[in-house]
Design a binder for these strands. Structure first.
Lengths: 330, 330
DNA sequence: TTTTAGCACTCATAAAATTATAGTGCTAGG
DNA sequence: CCTAGCACTATAATTTTATGAGTGCTAAAA
């Protein structure tokens, strides 16, 4: 059990380290608290014994350990009122009544990335949760056409299709068939439904059914629904802990990998969650702070990704604020 | 005027430096040519006097200067037959008759980026060259709908629209009006046409014309037509000349900036063009090799972007091959 | 019992000195 | 015109030294 003073020391060390990015010594802390550096040193060494602080070498100042950050996040920080400027910038976006929610979210994340210097991520609903709403076909020339697929959540994908010797009329019949038979199906089940519900029927109505069936089958099996948007990856290049190219390479590779990002979504907690260091699944020096949002049928996950040495209070406040703005939107 | 041997020396230095990434000394070259290192040194110093070679310090080996690379590219390299493996990988893509051209291009560039370790770029036609082909509207719920815009070149964009108190019927009327009046207009002129040709008419047929007009006006004025695809940016992190974070930051910022990339397109030459170092407009240590392609109405620009110390022969050969494959596709 | 002053000690960092080496330029002779 | 030979040079790698920020411990003060 920590004393009040020990908690204060830990808090001060985290907060200073976040700003200064170098080990914090007992002198600096003693100026903030009303006691001598020797006293601080005693407490620091206790904090080190319970693994909340670390030294970079025998005679260095202290930095928070992963557990230290955890303790700080769970017990010490006090997410408080937003900085006025941050608030204003987001208000402008959400006060624009015309703007659809998805645009509000994207713009906010751009703004947040710029003001914090961290990367931000939106993960939309996965193909599993998207139901087929409608498909449209726009012919481009004799052999090419664009197939557009829209889901009930407003997610849109398109794909060019090349069909030799198939009349537009036949294509339209197929599209009608699909629109009649399988609208409302989750996107990731469409391929199967196509096979079992459309394939048997299509032969009766459509002449070049083989070719058409195959083409549409491909459209849906490719449907990536890669509903992921990472903003401000380059911000990592500004942080001293990532001055090492190999570290950057690792982080960028991870941030480009949808599967890894989707992991962030897995957690079902609706509140704000903080994944520190190795918990982030990205890099030991990275922290991910995420939350889910839900507004009508629109739902997804927001995340802010930055160094472990992150301004936790600010980011949590910001994310909390963003979440309620999204959820109250209309 | 260079002697044959001097040209050989320059060629060997470029080719070795490309592989080894460190200054090349006279000993290494003398092993490749049948003369002593002293002879090579004499020629090297002549090559240095005419600014084709540089030293990194007084007693270092030589590296090619920007002009040295230029001379190499213009006079010495011999883009030859493709490496069999490279060829095979690309053939597989282009032999797939089903695959629309745009997919072939994207896949090829991914493959090329992976096999060369350079970044690749496709720049599609700009909004100026895209004519409005058709617009479609898919309602999502009471107030939201997706507007989908397709151009004659198969470029698709969509935007969510929020319209309170507007009946679907009215929306459909507007869409029909637009489809009848301004299809065939270059995308970047659509806004103007909307104002002068649709606005005056829309009032007669459509009840909530103000709101609808504004909504569609926004759709088109936002239409980014950001027809740009950069693949393999992270490859820069593998090159020793970019081990400096600031350099990387600069390069990544540039590669994220559409305006800078569009500069690559400006040049109207149809052949392969090589922009070395500062000519690249990206970084003094970067080279851009680009070409245009045209297949029917489909046209655009391909570029390979890597260090100035680039395998010019291979990249030019690869790009030439890709270009003819694209242009012969169907 | 807790806090603090004092002091010896440690390690990282930076600067200076040392060494090794890969390369050059130049000269003189083939 | 080419080349062997040699003095010379800058870098890179290693060692050396100094500095300083920061610690841990002890003994005295509160």
């Amino acid at each position: 059990m920590l004393t009040k003073r020990q908690e204060n020391i830990l808090k001060l060390i985290v907060e200073h380290y976040v700003k200064l990015a170098k080990p914090i010594g007992s002198n600096l802390i003693s100026k903030k608290l009303k006691c001598s550096s020797a006293t601080i040193r005693n407490d620091m060494s206790i904090l080190e014994n319970v693994n909340l602080l670390e030294k970079t070498h025998t005679s260095s100042g202290r930095i928070p350990s992963e557990e230290g950050y955890r303790y700080y996040v769970d017990n010490l920080m006090e997410p408080k009122k937003m900085n006025a400027e941050d608030m204003l910038k987001l208000q402008i976006i959400f006060h624009n009544q015309q703007l659809p929610l998805s645009d509000c979210i994207n713009k906010s994340l751009q703004v947040i990335s710029d003001m914090t210097n961290y990367a931000t991520i939106v993960l939309g609903s996965s193909s599993h949760d998207n139901l087929l709403k409608q498909i449209e076909v726009v012919p481009i020339d004799d052999v090419s056409m664009i197939v557009i697929v829209v889901t009930d959540r407003g997610h849109v994908e398109h794909k060019e299709l090349k069909l030799e010797n198939v009349s537009l009329n036949e294509v339209k019949k197929t599209v009608n068939l699909i629109n009649n038979l399988i609208v409302g199906t989750p996107i990731d089940e469409v391929s199967t439904k196509l096979e079992y519900e459309v394939k048997p029927v299509i032969g009766k109505y459509v002449t070049q059914h083989e070719q058409l069936y195959n083409a549409f089958y491909n459209v849906f099996s490719d449907f990536s629904s890669h509903n992921v948007n990472v903003v401000g990856k380059n911000k990592f290049l500004d942080q001293p802990e990532f001055s090492n190219i190999d570290k950057i390479k690792n982080i960028f590779d991870k941030l480009d990998d949808e599967n890894i990002l989707r992991e962030i979504k897995k957690d079902d907690d609706n509140n704000i969650k903080v994944y520190i260091g190795h918990e982030s699944n990205i890099d030991d020096d990275v922290t991910v702070i995420k939350t889910k949002f839900k507004n009508g049928t629109d739902e997804g996950t927001l995340a802010i990704v930055g160094p472990k040495r992150m301004d936790y209070e600010r980011v949590v406040t910001l994310l909390e604020y963003l979440k309620t703005n999204i959820e109250d939107n209309n």
